[in-house]
Amino acid sequence: MMRRVAIELKNVSRQFISPAGKVTLALRDFSLTVNEGDFCVIVGPTGCGKSTTLGMITGLNPPSTGTVEVFGKPVTGIDPDIGFVFQADAVFPWKNVLDNVAVGPIYRGKPAAQAREMAAHWVRRVGLAGFEHHFPHQLSGGMRKRVALAQTFINEPKILLMDEPFSALDVQTRALMQDELLGLWSEKKASVVFVTHDIEEAIALGDRVVVLSKGPGSVKCSYDIGLPRPRDVSTARYTGEFIDLSRKIWSDLKDEVQI
């Protein structure tokens, strides 16, 4: 069955100009297609344009050349169907868990009572029942990431962009959050673009891993991940196929990160 294209970047380049007038080219002749429901992971060295790619999809950083389309339409501004999970916690420190999760629906026009009811469901869904009235400073890093996932999924995004969301977590908590993310994604099937430096994380999560060259970034290679779904992160990484993919992707990536 043919699936429609959710995200398409065609031969885009993006340059930035510093206050001193210095021009930096972050991406050059970069193309990427993500079909509806796909989980695409981008890996690459620091400064290769991974986060810039996400910014172009959201409309925050329009390309200098080339085109960006979402569901066949040019990106001209912020799209409410796009959810974004950042590396840093995007929570309001003065709001408790329930009110943090309810912010999105309220902003989109839902009555406060309905928004809080929706938020209560999502707080339970991400395993935070009993912590509804806790504030962010009272939560662990993993719990704050669960709040961030609830904040995002409550709005039912058709496209989910994630910029190294689990990089600050310890190894055990990261594995738990990866499984949590896959569980939520398998229910909603948003089209995902996930940025990471971690090859194992990329293979564990993705349908496809795209490797970028060092900056200015362009696509060096792409790998289809054939590991079966539903996928258990903690066991998948010990399979022969996983180890072989990790070896191949590192072989392609190491030339880009060596000085």
Rank of each mutant, 00 (worst) to 15 (best):
M1Q: 05
R4I: 00
A6K: 10
K10E: 12
S13R: 12
R14S: 06
Q15V: 02
P19K: 11
A20H: 10
S31Q: 11
N35L: 08
E36I: 03
E36M: 04
D38Q: 14
F39E: 01
T46K: 05
G47T: 02
C48R: 07
T52D: 06
T58F: 07
G59L: 00
G59Y: 11
L60K: 06
P62Q: 10
T65M: 09
T65C: 07
T67E: 14
V68K: 07
F71V: 00
G77T: 03
D89L: 08
D89E: 06
V91P: 08
F92H: 03
V97C: 05
N100I: 04
I106H: 11
K110V: 02
A115P: 11
A119K: 10
W122G: 02
R124K: 12
G127V: 01
E132M: 09
H133A: 01
F135S: 00
P136R: 04
G142I: 02
M143I: 01
K145I: 00
A148E: 08
A148D: 15
Q151V: 00
E156M: 10
M162V: 02
L169G: 06
L169M: 05
M177I: 03
M177L: 15
E180M: 11
L182H: 13
L184P: 08
K189L: 00
S191W: 13
D198I: 01
E201G: 09
A202L: 04
I203R: 10
D207C: 06
V211L: 03
K214H: 14
V219W: 15
S222Q: 15
Y223W: 07
G226T: 09
D232E: 09
E241Q: 15
D244T: 09
W250S: 03
W250I: 00
V257Y: 09
Q258V: 04
